[in-house]
Structures are given as structure tokens and as C-alpha cells.
Write a protein that binds this DNA or RNA. Sequence first.
DNA 1: AAATTATTTAACATTTTTGTTCAACAAAAA
DNA 2: TTTTTGTTGAACAAAAATGTTAAATAATTT
Lengths: 205, 205
Amino acid sequence: MKDNKKQKKILEVAEEEFLMKGFAGARTVEIAQKAGVSHSMLHYYYKTKEQLFEHVMGEKLQQLKESVATVFMIEDMPVVEKVVELVVRHFEFLSENPDLPRFIINEVIVRPEYAEMMKREALPILKDAVARLQRELDAAAKEGEVRTMDAATLLMDIVSVNLFSFIVAPILSSVKPDMDFQAYYHARCQENVQLILNRINPDIK
Amino acid sequence: MKDNKKQKKILEVAEEEFLMKGFAGARTVEIAQKAGVSHSMLHYYYKTKEQLFEHVMGEKLQQLKESVATVFMIEDMPVVEKVVELVVRHFEFLSENPDLPRFIINEVIVRPEYAEMMKREALPILKDAVARLQRELDAAAKEGEVRTMDAATLLMDIVSVNLFSFIVAPILSSVKPDMDFQAYYHARCQENVQLILNRINPDIK
DNA sequence: AAATTATTTAACATTTTTGTTCAACAAAAA
DNA sequence: TTTTTGTTGAACAAAAATGTTAAATAATTT
């Protein structure tokens, strides 16, 4: 039939609901209703809530895995520029998936199966990327282009400042309901780049 | 009677459960059981789950409010040292309340009543503190001690790097189950101080 | 056209969770 | 000592959420 439009719609809405409310907070009837299908249809495609959740989670983990690969796939360029590119790409990824981090932290980490899955699939890619970055940083440090520093720590700093920009967004918007998010995100991304540049080489700019 | 030991215990366990699992995920029977009291006892003291939640939330918001005040109550000292002190105090507060941020972000922000409460009670204190910090930063910038910078942005950076150190902790521990948290936190706090110092004055150290 | 698949409705069954009640008893306060 | 307050257990009621079924119909495939 017409390539399972309804099934996809269910998954799509389930994604939104699970991301916003978590497994415990999401309601299957609400998902069905928002997807514009009957309650029974939901169970027709996905036997249980748990199963529906697994599909959503599968997609999200896949997405996360790919994002790690994509964010790090940067053409050959000087390490300083590369780091800037890294910050910007990561920021952009978060712009497109603003509540993914919260979801991952709330749901994946407490569930051993998924924690295990992440460890198996995303971690090796990440470790590899970190090792390469470390080599480039070391080389650049020898030339005096950057200060000596730990690639893993640098990455944590990048993720940390970028993530936070999105995590506080709901707080800010509840404080200033009329705020301009476009402008906010633009400014934050620049700020974050500055902060990281500062971090790898205090003399830049 | 013996100063409501059981009632306190219920609240204490409820706090843990709500913080870990959120309102939707926590179970009243489990709370009662973990508190070592009967199911009926829980409802004897707190009519409904909602009401129990409100008590927990009340305490947490109070705590958060106080922490803002405490963290900023720093004796007169040069602004650079003051900022370092700020980072360390904030980090320490988080050490003692590692899953408070997640709770606040997950539960408070989506509930308009609490968002409103925070806005009313914590925000003025914060705004005041930011304004004072800004004045000190400006004065120091005139003397060339620090670079010109926005106090609100600086605070966001501080909160961001500190918070992240705690938010990723569960990820790290699921990756490395035998990791030494004491050492990790110690290192992160130092890193964060360095990062912020760098930020306010790239020439320091 | 027949068979299969998608879909709805609406009722119903099941399970989970929350909340109530009541009788009995223990502990503390009056 | 009487009264009040705290506490339990066990059963039960009510509500909320999940999951099932069957009959009917629409759409699609064979």
C-alpha cells in the first residue's frame, strides 16, 4: 500500500512525544491521536509501547552515530580551522536536534541495553576521531600554533558549551517569552567558537 | 510525636525518586516501600502524588534559590579571584546536587507554575548579582586586568562547563564502569577554572 | 473478482497505578 | 487513664493506561 504513510506518521509523532516526555511520560493514545490514526492502528503496527519506543530509540541512536561520523568528516585543513569547523558543525547538529541530548541523557543512560549499544557502536568511531585530532594537535603544538592540550578534554569543552546553549534555551524562553532565538543561537555559536579558540591558543585574535 | 521521622523519610525518598525518574516515572508504592513505611502512610501525610511532588519541588526550588545567593556571597576580592571562586563554588554546589539540574530542566521548565516561581524568586537575585559582577568586570577591564566582557555571557560559560561535567558523568561511567569519580571531578573543576580564566583574560598563566 | 492488506469504531479486557477505608494496635500527649 | 496521633495491613475502589478483539469497510494487489 501507499508506502506506509500512517505507520511512518506514528513513528514520527512517537519520536516527538518520547523526546519531549520520555518513555514514562508519553501516552500511546495521545501518540495515535496526534498521528491522526486510530488507537488500534498503533497496536497494529507496534504491538507494545515498549516496541514503539525501541524503534524510535533505534533511529535516534543511528542518527547520533552518523552525526559523530559526519561532524568529524572534515577535509584536510589546519587544525585551528578544523576545530572551529568542529564547533560549528556540532552546533548545527544540535540546532537540528535540540532535544536529543536531553532524551539520550534521560532515557539511554539508565537503560543498560542502550548504553551497551552506544558503547559498541558510537564509541569506536569517536575514539578514532579523538586519536587523530590528538595527533594533529600535537603536531601543531610543536609548531607553536596551539598550546599543548588533551584532545578528549577539548572535545568535552566543545560539547559542553554547545550543549548548554540548547539546554538553557527553555529556561531563557520561560524567562523571556518573546526572545529572538535565531539571534540567540547565532550569538551563542560565535561565543562558543571564541571560547574554544581561546582555549586552544590564548593568543589568537 | 518523635518529630515526624517517617514523614521526613518519605519526603527524602520521594526526592530521590522524583529526581531520578521524574514525576511520570516515579511510583508512590515504591517510594513508600523504600521509605520503609506502609502504602497508606504515604497518603496519610500527602494526599496525592501531585502533592508530594509539590513538597519536593518546593524544597528543591528553595535550595536552588539559596544556592544562587550563597554562591554569589563572596567577600571583597579582586574580580579575577572572585570569578575563580565563583566557578569553584558552583562546581561544589553541583557536587552536592548532581542530578538537580536534570530535574529542573525536565520538570520545572515544562510546568508553567514553577517556571513562574523561579522567575519571581530566583531571577531577581541573579540579575542583581550579574549587575554587580558587570560593574566589577568593567572596572577591572579599564585597568587592563581582564578583557572587556559581558557578565551574563561569562556566567553562562561558567554554568555551562560546570554543568556539563556532571551531565556527562553517567555517560562516562557507563563507558568506563570502574572510573575514579573523585579524580574525574577534581580534574574537571581545575579544567573549568582554567577555561574560564582564559576566557576573562587570555594572558593569565 | 477475489484475496489481501489497511483502517476505523467501539467495545471490552487487563494491567498498573493511584487513592480510600477500616479495623486493629502502638506510642505519645492530655 | 483517656485521648489523640501515628502506624500497619489488607482489602478494595477508582482511575488511568495499555492492549485486544471483532465486525465493518475502504483501498490495494493479485
